[in-house]
Design a binder for these strands. Structure first.
Lengths: 153, 153
DNA sequence: TGACATTCGTTCGCTACCTATCAATTATCG
DNA sequence: CGATAATTGATAGGTAGCGAACGAATGTCA
């Protein structure tokens, strides 16, 4: 047993949580390394991806889809606007909302970006589909348990 | 299927990678909320935890145990030193190394901190042990696959 | 021994999360 | 209608992570 096993707790349950973190961090590291030549962060890529796929989107809606707090997305959008990849325009109906869309430069960059499918394939491609389903179910249940723990407070 | 599919939450919510992130974030949120009254971050807690359990530790070793880069741990240690919870002293044999230990205030705070095992219990307590084992195995394999992807570059 | 390489901790600059708060806007309800 | 509540986006301040680069200390090897 390694020291990190003891760190995360003596039982197997804790190990799942620790591996969830490691897996997330490792995935992000690969994504960041792939996008570094393009001066793009992983979450910035998700924003471009969504806008390229779904077209102009109200900022709040995008935040809900990417599961980011308003403040988090606000900062990322500011960065992308500064890079002239995303435009933030007023929406006619609700003056509070901002409509996000790709600029021409954003469109152009999106065309040049490599396909990131290989990341997911490398990570999970060799796994038994049934095991993947089980892992997803365990993680989903844990997430919901934890979130309901926060609500209760 | 890429990470992007998972983020959109379209219908493929069986995506393990996305749930790994959600699970990690949710766990950290509960931990942060629990530790907020004590003005402690989650990783700061891990540092105190290890020092309370294992006694004085060379900084680099602690970094390896907690799987943190030197730069990351350096910042966290600085914060804990500023709060007078951790002391950073010179080690006799190697003048490069710093020996970390709990200060009296650090010991005192540690005694007052609540038990955090309820978090893992709430998250994974209701799951089938076999499923937990499967989830851990899937995540571990994915992590190793991703890390070897980084080495190759 | 001396030259070179490695290691440790720090610092810098960055991404990406969060909470709390604020101004502006819109929604709701008496 | 008007007062109050809720929502949007921005900002401030904090935590957590990374890579790159640097000085000091240590290891290695010709």
């Amino acid at each position: 047993m390694t020291e990190s096993d003891t760190m995360t707790g003596a039982d197997e349950d804790a190990a799942v949580g620790a591996w969830a973190k490691r897996c997330y961090m490792a995935g992000r590291a690969v994504m960041d390394a792939t996008l570094r030549p393009f001066d793009l962060g992983s979450t910035q890529w998700y924003v471009l991806w969504h806008l390229a796929q779904s077209g102009p989107t109200v900022q709040r809606d995008l935040g809900r889809k990417l599961e980011l707090e308003r403040a988090t997305l606000s900062g990322i959008v500011t960065t992308l606007v500064r890079k002239d990849l995303v435009a933030q325009s007023a929406d006619g109906t609700d003056q509070r909302q901002r409509l996000l869309s790709l600029t021409p430069a954003g469109h152009a960059l999106w065309q040049e970006l490599p396909d990131l499918t290989f990341i997911h394939d490398a990570a999970f491609g060799g796994a038994d589909p049934a095991d993947l389903e089980t892992a997803a179910r365990v993680l989903r249940a844990a997430t919901e348990n934890l979130q309901s723990l926060l609500k209760k407070d």
